[in-house]
Design a protein around this nucleic acid. Sequence first.
DNA 1: AACACGGGGAA
DNA 2: TTCCCAGTGTT
Length: 311
Amino acid sequence: MPELGSLPTLHRRITDWFHHEARDLPWRDPDCGPWGVMVSEFMLQQTPVVRVLPVWTEWMRRWPTPADLAAEPTSEVIRAWGRLGYPRRALRLQAAAQRIVEQHGGDVPDTEAELLALPGVGAYTAAAIACFAFEIPTVVVDTNIRRVHARLVSGRALPEKSLTRAESALAQTLLPEDPGTACAWNAGVMELGALVCTARSPRCGECPVAELCAWRTAGMPEPHYQPRGQSWAGTDRQLRGEIMAVLRENGSATGSELQSVVASSGRLGEHTPEPDQWRRCLSSLVADQLAERRPADADDDGPETTYSLPG
DNA sequence: AACACGGGGAA
DNA sequence: TTCCCAGTGTT
């Protein structure tokens, strides 16, 4: 822990840095509004800024209010989500928009508790919307912020594998008392983690608090565990993604058509899914309501079974 | 606590 | 080509 007296220095250095170096992102525009912030947070949950930008822009042009999105056929929402990944997020965003229309008069709610009750909104997203859309001073903790805290204050290369009570307590301690500064602090620490204090090759030469960093003072020790990447090739996630790509393009297809189109696309490489994997992925997409199966009682990927985008 | 969930850009 | 990213919801 830094001495209490040094906290204002941390706050000032990082908020000053953010003021000068922050990326000019449309959801940071003061005129963006809570809905634009909410859409951006859903899209940014697992997707980098550069890929979110064009989709967010078109999304907001097309559906400038929650009511606009709520009224749209789900198939169009899934198509507009495109290749952002994790398409269940698109369903949850529309479900949240519908809840906002039904229970909040069409306006994004302005308390963390109400936000947390919306589909697809967890602790991080509720705090982020409260802070960045409504300027409510609250503790925002995402993976970038956790990494900056781990290095700057705790002297470790990486945060714990999952959020601990100690990390939450630390974040609370570090939050500026001044409400106006708190949101700039949250945004600044997050931006610092995204641009400078990156996971693998931190740009300490560009860091406004490098000389205060406990990790550097400690000689930049290696992480206490080896982060393990996720496999991708041949996984259900990959096959689900390819199935959704075909459905977005064609609207509907039989089970056998899906198999031939996906196979001829070549995107699976040398992997040839087993019948069990086809059944598992098709059934899970139906269960997730990302696809509809007709006839409804069909339980396989036979030639007469048809899959389509929902509604 | 562990797992499932997409996709593309950087290294 | 391989590596890397990251919050929510379910089990």
